[in-house]
């Protein structure tokens, strides 16, 4: 009895604490000191908007139709001219962008301290900490039984950072002309493995965050570069990539496809 009472006491205390913190946070976020920011991703292939019905041609003269285009964006950080920076809190800094879901291409970031930011940094992929964290904390975009469906390697624990699939006459007939590029690898847990985590930084001069401004940073991703930016990737030679040394080269290719387009306010 006594034991149970003590236990309850401890629980009340901790709950009180949590509620108080929550309340405090609730108050502060209502003040004028923060604002919102949207990052918007638009997908192109040689300047033409990507959709799942049109045919595209890469620089190796290979015809392509896409059926899947997904990637993770994480660890978003905003930097200021004076060298200081603001990192979006870990628990709200993971996003799965999918060509098939319009809303997923707009990342809404909330409660950002007001001010002028001169740069944005983010990772395409999922850092090793989240790749190895207790499943209780892998919620939202990282829920392997929810949003992250199909974006997790079950046999080789880790998230698939970037997934591009489709058909091309250059892919083998016996594969029904399908190609698939699944890129991941966070560097390994007990043993070193491939690392495909790539980070991108943009200048965003004049980006103002405040309560009454809603800035939108548009980023254009022209995926033609996935096939040729640094290392030529020919569907005829390599139609399926799941886990291999080439994965890191593909990551180098696609990271260079992310380009700052413009800054607007809505």
């Amino acid at each position: 009895m006594n034991l149970k009472f003590n236990k309850m006491n401890a629980k009340i205390k901790s709950i009180l604490l949590i509620l108080t913190i929550g309340l405090l946070l609730g108050f502060t976020s209502k003040t004028d000191d923060t604002g919102n920011l949207t990052i918007s991703f638009n997908h192109f292939f040689k300047g033409q908007k990507i959709d799942f019905t049109s045919e595209f041609v890469n620089s190796h003269d290979e015809k392509i139709k896409f059926s899947t285009l997904n990637y993770f964006i994480s660890n978003i950080k905003l930097t200021k001219k004076d060298g200081t920076s603001y990192s979006i809190p870990q628990d709200s800094s993971y996003f799965l962008v999918k060509e098939s879901e319009i809303q997923s291409k707009q990342l809404h970031l909330k409660n950002i301290p007001k001010g002028e930011y001169s740069g944005i940094t983010f990772t395409v992929g999922v850092d090793s900490v989240r790749n190895t964290m207790d499943i209780a904390r892998r919620t939202g975009a990282l829920d392997v039984g929810g949003t992250a469906k199909g974006m997790y390697w079950i046999w080789n624990s880790g998230y698939i950072f970037f997934k591009m699939e489709g058909t091309s006459p250059s892919a083998p007939d016996q594969q029904k002309n399908k190609f698939a590029y699944h890129v991941g690898g966070f560097g390994g847990y007990n043993t070193k493995t491939i690392n495909s985590i790539r980070t991108k930084e943009f200048e965003t001069n004049g980006l103002m965050v405040s309560r009454d401004k809603n800035p939108v940073v548009a980023i254009n991703v022209d995926l033609a570069g996935m096939f040729d930016a640094h290392t030529p990737i020919k569907i005829a030679e390599r139609s399926t990539v799941m886990w291999g040394d080439i994965s890191t080269k593909i990551a180098d290719n696609y990271i260079s496809c992310f380009k700052f387009f413009n800054l607007s306010y809505k």
Partner: peptide, 12 residues
């Protein structure tokens, strides 16, 4: 040894 967390073995 591809999986290092017991919690994720059933998904496999």
């Amino acid at each position: 040894g591809g999986v290092f967390n017991l919690d994720l073995t059933p998904v496999n």
